[in-house]
Every structure is written in structure tokens, then in C-alpha cells.
């Protein structure tokens, strides 16, 4: 697993544009959008809008980093090493985990960039060290879940153009059907139901509470961790199943 991880990281750092592209758009949201919309949001009682949208932007950047992780499968298929690894004496679970963890690591790198930038906009984590640790866990779960999904989808699709089109069609609705940019309180009806059904809504809300509130409410965090533990298991099982299917032609 560590070999696969090492090889994928080598690819990533030789292609830094894949990091730049996925972090650039969320940075623009964080810096420009929060500056423009921040003044209006102050009327709604949101004192630091950059801090308010940071959790949603963290999820957006994680989704982007994981999507670019799926591209590695297409590159490996094109250069032939995908087949070479599949016939090597290496466990399928190690192949999947190695690639998923690479996407998780890149997600953390990009989230770190966002957090450093946010620091200059007076964003702090009110819940302290314990809150930061919980945030790391929640981000890990988000990235792990998403990297499993993107891994599975990348093996289901014939080429990277279709893959990128489909991933864009998935990521943007997930982002906009969440409380990433606006508070959820004033929403009603079908739209609110759709947003509540989006699992990333609960991650964003949990991260936001950890940023704004100095007391950690276990009842708020544990159900989210439980939900994402189940989702991570399903996501890994799907990726594992799809890779195994590659050798059952």
C-alpha cells in the first residue's frame, strides 16, 4: 500500500498543476466571494463570513482533490502500469487504499493552504485543540469517502473527458445543495429536504460548529461520525469490488 501511495504522490508532485487547479477555485470563493458577500451577511448576524464559508470551501476543495485522484487510473491505464500492477502479487485492497490515501493527503495539503489563508481573515477555531482534532477526523472521512467514490467511478468510465464531465455534474450540485454559502435556517420546503439529505450538509454544519462554538456538543458530532463511518466503508467496498471486477473479464 505504501508503495502505491509513494508512486501516486510522486506523480502528483511532478504534476503540481493538478493541485493548483483544484485549490484555485475554492481559494477564489474563500477570498473574493467572502469579501464581496461578507458585508451583506453581517446583516444576517454572521460576523466573520470567511469563517462561515470555510467549512463549505473545505468540503469543495476535498471533493476537487479526490476527483483529480481518479484521473491517476486513466493515466495508469494509458501507460500500461495499471495492468502491470494488477498481475503483481499485491493485494487489491492495498492498491485501492494506496490510491485513496493519496487523494486524502492531497486534500489535507489543500485544506492546509485554505486554513493558512483564512488565518489572515481572522478565522480561528473556537473549540480549540480538541475541535481541530475533530475537524481533522471529519475532513479525513469526507476525503476517504469521496476518494473511494471517485476511484469507483473512474474505473466505470471509458475516458477522462467523460469522467471529468460527470464529476463536475456531481460536485457542483453537492456544493450548492448544502449550507456552504448561506445559513440553512431560513430555508423551507423541498429545497430544505434536499439539502438535509445531502450528507455533506452535516459535515459542513459540524465543522462550522467547531469553528464558531467553544463548546463541543458530542450529540452533534457523533451522529455525523457514525454516518460517515458507514459511508466510508461502503465507498471502500465499492472501490474494492470495482477493482476486482477488472480481473474478471
Amino acid at each position: 500500500m505504501l508503495n502505491i501511495l509513494w508512486r501516486s504522490i510522486k506523480w502528483r508532485f511532478q504534476n503540481p498543476i493538478s493541485i493548483a487547479v483544484t485549490v484555485l477555485q475554492p481559494l477564489i470563493w474563500l477570498v473574493l466571494y467572502s469579501a464581496v458577500a461578507g458585508q451583506i451577511m453581517q446583516n444576517l448576524g454572521i460576523s466573520n463570513y470567511t469563517a462561515f464559508i470555510l467549512p463549505g470551501i473545505i468540503v469543495l476543495v476535498t471533493l476537487g482533490a479526490c476527483c483529480s485522484g481518479g484521473i491517476i487510473n486513466f493515466i495508469m491505464k494509458t501507460n500500461g502500469s495499471f495492468y502491470r500492477i494488477l498481475i503483481a502479487p499485491i493485494r487489491r485492497s492495498s492498491i485501492v487504499l494506496g490510491q485513496m490515501l493519496e487523494a486524502v493527503l492531497v486534500s489535507f495539503l489543500e485544506v492546509a493552504i485554505l486554513c493558512i489563508v483564512s488565518f489572515f481573515f481572522s478565522v480561528t477555531v473556537a473549540s480549540g485543540i480538541a475541535g481541530i482534532l475533530l475537524m481533522i477526523l471529519l475532513i479525513f472521512m469526507t476525503a476517504f469517502f469521496m476518494s473511494g467514490i471517485t476511484y469507483t467511478i473512474s474505473l466505470l468510465l471509458p475516458n477522462e473527458v467523460i469522467y471529468e464531465t460527470i464529476m463536475n455534474a456531481i460536485v457542483l450540485p453537492i456544493f450548492f445543495l448544502s449550507p456552504a454559502l448561506f445559513p440553512l435556517e431560513n430555508l423551507t420546503g423541498g429545497l430544505k429536504i434536499a439539502i438535509m439529505l445531502n450528507p455533506f450538509t452535516h459535515i459542513i454544519n459540524a465543522l462550522r460548529r467547531l469553528i464558531f462554538e467553544d463548546t463541543i456538543l458530542i450529540n452533534d458530532i457523533v451522529p455525523v461520525i457514525g454516518l460517515f463511518t458507514v459511508m466510508c466503508c461502503i465507498s471502500f467496498a465499492l472501490a474494492f469490488w470495482r477493482l476486482k471486477k477488472e480481473t474478471t473479464h
Binding site: 508512486r7 510522486k10 506523480w11 511532478q14 504534476n15 501507460n79 500500461g80 502500469s81 495492468y83 502491470r84 498481475i87
Partner: peptide, 13 residues
């Protein structure tokens, strides 16, 4: 071990 029809080295390594 198998040397496939298309070269399978990792160009980034």
C-alpha cells in the same frame, strides 16, 4: 512477470 504489448514504465519515475 509480463511485458505487455505496450510499454508499461511509469514516465514520472
Amino acid at each position: 512477470a509480463c511485458v505487455a504489448q505496450h510499454i508499461s514504465i511509469d514516465a514520472h519515475l
